[in-house]
Every structure is written in C-alpha cells, then in structure tokens.
Design a protein around this nucleic acid. Structure first.
Lengths: 202, 202
DNA sequence: TGCTTTTATGCACAGGTTGCAATTTCGCAA
DNA sequence: TTGCGAAATTGCAACCTGTGCATAAAAGCA
C-alpha cells in the first residue's frame, strides 16, 4: 500500500495543506486565492479540488472524527454516571482529540484555531458543523439515558455546547490565552450543569 | 416622503422579496439563482444587489432589530428579577417580534423559518448572526447583574440560546408543528435555568 | 422645458466550484 | 523492456455570486 503513487499523493496533499495554512496566516483567508495555494504547492488550480472539496475544507479536516469521538464517549457511559459528568468527560475528550490533531508535522492546530475565530466565514463553518452534530449527540444521549426524552436531550446538548462556546468566545475576545479560553469553557460547562438559576438569581 | 419614487422602490423591493421566497420554496435555495429572482421580479439581475447585499440577506431582514430587542429587554430588568425570569421574558419578546415581522402582506415568517431550518447555508447564516449577538447580550447582562463576570454571563447566554435552539431543532426534525417547536424552545429554557443536573442525574 | 439627483442597467471582471475530456504518470504483467 | 490499463493531473468551458464602474433611464424640481 505504499508505492510511489501513495507517497506522492500524501506529499501533494501535505504541500497543499501547508501552503494554504501558511498563506492564510500570512495574508488572511479571503485574500488568499486557490490559484495562489495551488501555485505554492506547484500543482494546477484544478488539482486543489481533487484533494479538498472546498477552500474551507482545508481547515476542517477531521470534523467527523471529532463528532464520532463524542458519540463514543457517550456510548461508554459508566453505570450510574450523571449526565453532567458524562458531558464533562466528553469535553475532555474533545480537547484531547484537538491536541492530537496533527496530520501535519508542524502544529496546524493553533493556527487553525486562531483562524477559525478570526475569520467570519470559518467561524460560520465551524458553528454549522457543530450544530449538525448536536441532534446526533442528543440521540445518543437518549439511548444511554432512557429516562430522557429527545427534546430534553437536545436541550441538554445545546445548553452544554452553547455555554462552552460562548464562554470561550468571550474569553477569547477579551484577549485571553489558549489556557484562559479552555478554563472559560470548563466554567461554562459548570454553569450549564448547575443551571442559570445558580448565578445572579437575586 | 411618499412620492412616486418611494412607492416604486417599495414595490420593487417587495417584488424581489416575494419572488425570492416563492422560488426558494418551490425549487430550493441553492437551485434558485439571482438571475431567476430578478427575472421574476422583472428587474435586471444587477438591480437585485441594489436592494439586498446578498442572496442570503433576503431572508435575514431584521436581524439587527431582533438583537436590539434582546438588549432592550435586558436593559429593562425589573428590580430583583432573577436571571432566569429575565431570559424567559427575552424569549417571549423574540417570539413576539418574529410574529410581528411582516414587511410583506403575506406571511413571510413561516416560510423563512422553514427555509432556515431546511437549508444548510441559511442555517449557517442564522447561527452566525445569533452567535455574533451573544457577546453583546452577555455584556448587557453584566451591566444589569453587577455580580456577574463576563465569562459567566457568556456561559449563561450560550446555555440559554443553545438549549433553546437545539431543543427546537430536534422538535422540528421530529416533524413537530410550529407550536411544538415553540414548546420545545420553552422546555429548553427551563432546562437551561434548572441545570443539566436536574435531568437524568442518576 | 431643462437641470439635477436617484435609480436602473449593462458590462467587465474576480473568485469559487463543477463537469468533461484529454493527457500524463504510474503499476503491473507479459 | 515494452505495452496496457488504471489513476492522477490538468486544461477548458461554464455557471454562480458579488463588485466596481460607467452610462442610460426616470423622477423631482425650478
């Protein structure tokens, strides 16, 4: 399975990936054209689409993997494990998965994360991917928590993901470091678990 | 202020709006081109962009208004009103605002809502708009709840919106009526307020 | 009627994306 | 080594969204 052909394909893919991320970082996402990426990777523009289905797709490689990882965590619910604990574990799994996310040698992940927050088009794509997974995650929850109806499960997943995202987003917009953003995410989860009434209830 | 000119502008705008929504409903969003919309409204394709800044924009007319409405509700917090109650009022305001949302004679809102859930591109746009508002809403919350830090406020807003959205989405995907979706949204809010630990905690 | 400000339109173009066909490259077997 | 077939690469044409620019058409006003 490792002939000259396969190796060349991998090399070309990586060249496109590297070129894209580098150019995106240097001159911005919108300002970078597919023609430039292809030129930097020394292939024809048309060939780009043989490797990636769209410009955005370069930055959202293992999206399905992460969705599957979430489902796996849910399926592995410990007997008697409360919902909140399970979702916290899911969050940890997500973070770990993102860290391991190294199709490239150099660290693509931080660049991708920064771009994702900075570029509206990419943020939109990320949101969409996230939202698409949520009903599936909710359905998985229903299976391991038989007492949960689908709407409640959806609400739980939405509350969890929403709290996590916006808390992280606020922290990021306040100029927080990656650790700050992560901590904010955890704090968001806590709030989702304990309920909004545990906050400024006065 | 109501010369022939103004009236014609309104008429053209409405024609474009009607044509767009009708064509979107009949043949789908992606399958409808701006050229078709313009032809149906009997104007040149270029003119479409004099009335709407993009194809998506046709369906997201008063997005800023709704964001502002949320901020208004928050600013009008009753003394001692708990966070959950305030957010519930915000939801009611949103629903009422959507119902009053009748730039056109015929009911655009239901069609728009259905399209928004059905078409990925539109769902993405809706999510993005919603997400963009959330930090602002969180900041407004911070002002009327001085004991709230920004990250917690963000978590609260995210949890609220997320629960509301996904509960509604699940209900909609299960073939629920508009009322079902609304009820699911309310249930989602309740869950966000009481916390996930109030669910399948066993 | 003639002048001015909008409004509508046409034209050209950039960029993303797809389909198709031709061509190159590679793997493999004779 | 040669030649065949599959796979990869590429070029080309086309479509669609969106923008800038210049011009024509229309409407208000003097």
């Amino acid at each position: 399975m490792e002939g000259h052909r396969e190796r060349k394909k991998v090399r070309t893919r990586r060249a496109l990936l590297e070129a894209a991320v580098r150019l995106f970082s240097e001159q911005g996402y919108e300002q970078t054209t597919i023609a430039e990426i292809a030129a930097a990777a020394d292939v024809a523009p048309r060939t780009f689409f043989a490797y990636f289905s769209s410009k955005e797709d370069v930055l959202f490689l293992q999206a399905e993997d992460r969705g599957q990882a979430m489902l796996d965590v849910i399926a592995g619910r410990q007997p008697g494990e409360p919902l909140g604990a399970l979702l916290s574990r899911m969050f940890d799994g997500l973070v770990r998965g993102l860290a391991d996310d190294d199709e490239l040698d150099f660290a693509l992940s931080p660049l991708r994360a920064r771009l994702m927050f900075a570029e509206p088009a990419l943020r939109a794509r990320g949101l969409t991917l996230m939202m698409q997974e949520q009903p599936r995650v909710a359905a998985a929850l229903c299976e391991v928590y038989p007492e949960l109806d689908p709407v409640s499960a959806g609400a739980a997943v939405g509350s969890f993901m929403g709290a996590l995202s916006v808390a992280g987003l606020v922290a990021q917009q306040q100029g927080g470091s990656n650790e700050d953003v992560l901590a904010a995410g955890r704090r968001g989860i806590e709030i989702a678990i304990n309920g909004l009434s545990s906050l400024g209830g006065s």
